[in-house]
Structures are given as C-alpha cells and as structure tokens.
C-alpha cells in the first residue's frame, strides 16, 4: 500500500535543499547568459546592418 503521509523528515529536508540549490543554479545560469547576451548585443550592435 502507498505510504500516504508517511513523511520522512530527512527526505523533506533534502527536498528543501534541492529547492534551494536548484533555484539558485537556474538563476545563476540565466543571469550569466543574460549578462553575456547584453554585452554581446552592445558589442555587435554596429554590425547589425553588415550582418543582414
């Protein structure tokens, strides 16, 4: 039978750790990409016409 509400506190703590690390990891990657894209957009802005 499925152990409904048989909460394992260690697993619950692990899930919170996963939440913290997971969200931080996602934000770190996205912020890094956003910064690189912003810089790249500025650097290549003048090239737009010649590229296209």
């Amino acid at each position: 039978m499925f152990p409904l509400l048989a909460v394992n506190m260690d697993t619950l703590m692990d899930s919170f750790q996963l939440m913290g690390q997971g969200m931080v990891g996602i934000f770190v990657v996205l912020i890094l990409i956003a910064i690189i894209v912003s810089v790249l957009t500025k650097i290549t802005a003048n090239k737009k016409d010649s590229d296209e």
Partner: peptide
Amino acid sequence: NPKMFLFGGAAQFGIFAAISIAVLLGFDL
C-alpha cells in the same frame, strides 16, 4: 529584452514546491 530571463527562472518554483509536497505525501525523493 534580456531581463526577461529572470522570469523564466522564477516560474520554475512550482517544480520544487511540488517536489516538497510530493515528499509530504509519502513519495521518495
């Protein structure tokens, strides 16, 4: 509009909230 990157990140919160609630319901990690 690179600041929109942030919203993609924030909207993944439900994944982790659901994981914690699933653990509360008795699922393993």
